[in-house]
Amino acid sequence: MTAITAARSPSHWWQSRVMRRFMSHKLALFGLVMISLLTLACVVGPWLLPYDMLFIDLRARFAPPFTGNHYLGTDPLGRDIAARLLMAGRVSLLVGFIAMALAILVGTLVGVIAGYRGGWINAVLMRTVDGFLSFPSIFLLLALSAALKPSPMMITVIIALTGWMEVARIVEAEVRSLKEREFILAGRMLGLGRAHIMFRELLPNVMGPIIVAATLTVARAILLEAYVSFLGFGIQPPLPSWGNMLNGAQQYLAGAPWLAIIPGAAITVAVASFNFIGDGLRDALDVRSDTV
């Protein structure tokens, strides 16, 4: 079965057709650059800024952007927004990535098993997927987060819990169409185990759609975290996240609009970047898609 996969790999991965096509997609490239910069800024930025992000200075509260060294102004406690924005970025991006990883893991597992095994296993798994999909996930998300002790991990899990179904559907459909193909039938003839066929033979062949879905899931997870934290159910202070920086911003909207504008802009940039990358990957990997 090494022969099956060998056929599609050229000498180096960066010379591959996929890579070339992705690199020629300007928007995707732009997204990749933005995300890299944003991630870099969030990782090293807080050390470079002259303000300790958590230092509360009530005399300096509500400073508008470009006041002294506060490039993005200060919040109601007089903390530097630039520093907090970057710290919050760590949290929001991390939540996004981990939620994506979990959602992809669960979705892929369910999709592969349901697609390959078929029969009643498929029926049970896919009806559960339908069940989760058939009410607005925001209901489930809010019900869960209004009910559980909100820790960052908990929020991540909850977001993942409402995001795995799409992946499961995509993978299931792909696997179902692949499993009757010759190389799989050949594998079965050779007496390969079920697990082996599912995860060593089928999975690599559905990686394309999964990667695209993964990128879009990160974008979605960041949006969801923002909304839930905006309502006050999500990430709890003193830990900042882009979403909880917006919590309370509505109240100060008239006097301090930058409290609302800045974190929202950061969310939009991050999410748009992921969406651009996802779009580029879709073209590059030739994934036909049912979603935008």
Partner: peptide, 25 residues
């Protein structure tokens, strides 16, 4: 195309807040 992707990336609630700020306040 680009507009659509950006629109999909804006948090709806935030867009609403900005709307309130500009058109109401």
């Amino acid at each position: 195309t680009i507009g659509a992707m950006v629109a999909l990336s804006i948090p709806t609630f935030w867009f609403g807040l900005i709307g309130i700020y500009v058109f109401s306040l």
